[in-house]
Amino acid sequence: MASHPSRLGPADIFVALVMNLLWGLNIIAIKMSVDQVPPTTAAFLRLSIVFLVCLPWLRIVPGRMRALLLLGLLTGCLFFLVINLSLMVATNVGVLAIAGQLGVPFSMLAAVIVLKEQIHVLRIAGVALSLAGVGILAFDPAVANEIPGVALTILSSIIWAGASLIQRSLKGVPVLTIYAWIGLVGMVGLSLSALLIEPAGIASIPDLPPAVFGWIAFSAIGSSVIGHGSMSWLLQRHPISQVMPLTLAAPVMSVAAASLFFGTPLTPIMILGGLIALSGVAIVTIRTAKVAKKERPPQVL
C-alpha cells in the first residue's frame, strides 16, 4: 500500500468534481429513464450495463462470496428498483434528493446497532439534524403530493444502510469486482422480476429510442462505475477523513440540477429543510471519517 499524500492535488480535486457531478446529475438520468421505461425494466437494463462493463473483473473471491451475493441482492436488485419506483411516482425530484441524504445517518445507526460501534454527542446531533431537515419537508404544501416518493426514498436509504454494513466486510476486494457481482445478481434478479410483472416492458426493449439507453447508460457507467471508481481512486491516495467530506457536494448538485432541468420550484421550506439535513449529514460524514481515519483504506482496482 502506497503512502498517502498529505494534500489534495489538482488531479484529486478534478476527480472529486467529476465524481460529484456524475452523482449529482444521476437523479436526472434516472427520472428521464423511468418516465419512458417501466421501473423494473429500467433497473434491469442499468444493472446489465454495469455487469457488461465490469465483466473483465468478475472472479470468485474465496471467503467473500456470501457477502458479495447478498450485497448484489440488496444493492443490485432492491436498492435500484426502489430508487426507480420513487422517481417514477415523483414530480419534484429535488425533494427526493434531500430525503435521500438519510442514507448516511441510517448507515451510521446500522453500524451502531449491528456492529456495536460507539456514537457520541456530535454524531447524535448530526443524525437529529438530518432527520429534522427531512421532517421539515412535510410542512411544505408543495411536497404533499410527493409523500409516496419520499417514503420510497427513505426505504431505499434503509436498504443502502444495510448494504453499507456488508460492504465494510469486503475490504480488500477490488471495487470493479464488487460491481461485477452487483451487476450480475441485479441483472438476473431484475430480469426475472421484469418478466413476471412487466412483460410488456421487456418486450419493448428493442424499440426503445437511443436517448433512453443513453440515460440508462449514464446511470450505469457514469454514476455506478466511474463515480464509485473515482471514490476508490481517491481512497487509494488519501485518508478516508480527507475523502469522505468531498462527497457532500453531490446532494447540492442533485437538488440544483433537478430544479434547473425539470423547472421544479425550490420553496423556502425545501431550502431550509435541505440545509438542515445537509448540515446533519456533514456532521455525521466528517465525524465518522475522523473516527475511521486510522483504518487502512480498502485495496481497490
Results as ranks from 00 to 15, higher is better:
L301F: 13
L152Q: 07
L73V: 13
I60M: 13
P62G: 05
L165Y: 02
I136F: 14
P210Q: 11
P105H: 01
P62K: 10
H228K: 08
G183T: 01
A132V: 12
G227H: 09
A128N: 10
V291T: 08
A2Q: 14
P56M: 01
R123T: 10
F14N: 11
N26R: 09
G229M: 07
A256N: 11
I49N: 08
P141W: 08
W233V: 03
F106S: 01
K171L: 14
L278V: 11
V15S: 09
I240K: 07
A200I: 09
Q167Y: 09
P62F: 00
I30K: 00
S3V: 14
L8W: 05
G172T: 03
G189F: 11
P38R: 11
E146I: 07
L131W: 02
V150D: 07
S259G: 10
R123C: 00
L25I: 12
S86K: 06
V212M: 01
A67N: 15
A128E: 07
L192G: 07
S48R: 02
S156Y: 10
S130V: 09
M19C: 13
R287F: 10
P199H: 03
P245D: 02
W233G: 03
P199A: 01
S230N: 06
V18F: 05
I154C: 07
L115G: 01
I119G: 04
R46N: 07
S193I: 15
L208H: 10
V34C: 04
F44G: 05
P268C: 12
H4V: 09
N145C: 06
A258L: 01
R59W: 02
G126N: 04
G94K: 07
L275W: 04
I49C: 12
F218R: 02
L266M: 14
L58R: 04
I119K: 04
T247L: 11
S193K: 02
S219E: 03
K116R: 14
P298Y: 06
F80G: 09
Q101M: 14
T288Y: 12
M231C: 11
P62R: 13
H238K: 04
Q101V: 14
S232W: 06
A42C: 12
L81S: 08
G63I: 08
L8V: 09
L152T: 04
L278R: 02
F79C: 01
D35Q: 14
F213E: 12
I240V: 15
T75R: 13
G126M: 11
R46E: 07
S279H: 03
P38T: 11
H228S: 04
G133K: 00
A258S: 13
L176S: 08
K293M: 12
V252Y: 03
L8T: 08
S241Q: 06
V61L: 13
I221G: 01
G24V: 06
L129R: 03
P297M: 12
F213P: 03
A138E: 10
I286N: 06
L170H: 03
G186M: 00
A97Y: 07
V121M: 12
A277R: 09
P174N: 10
T41E: 00
S130E: 08
P297A: 15
M253Q: 09
L78C: 13
A29R: 04
S130Q: 05
S33I: 14
I124Q: 13
A29Q: 00
L96G: 11
I286E: 03
A161F: 00
G186T: 02
W233F: 05
V281D: 03
S241Y: 03
L301W: 12
E117P: 05
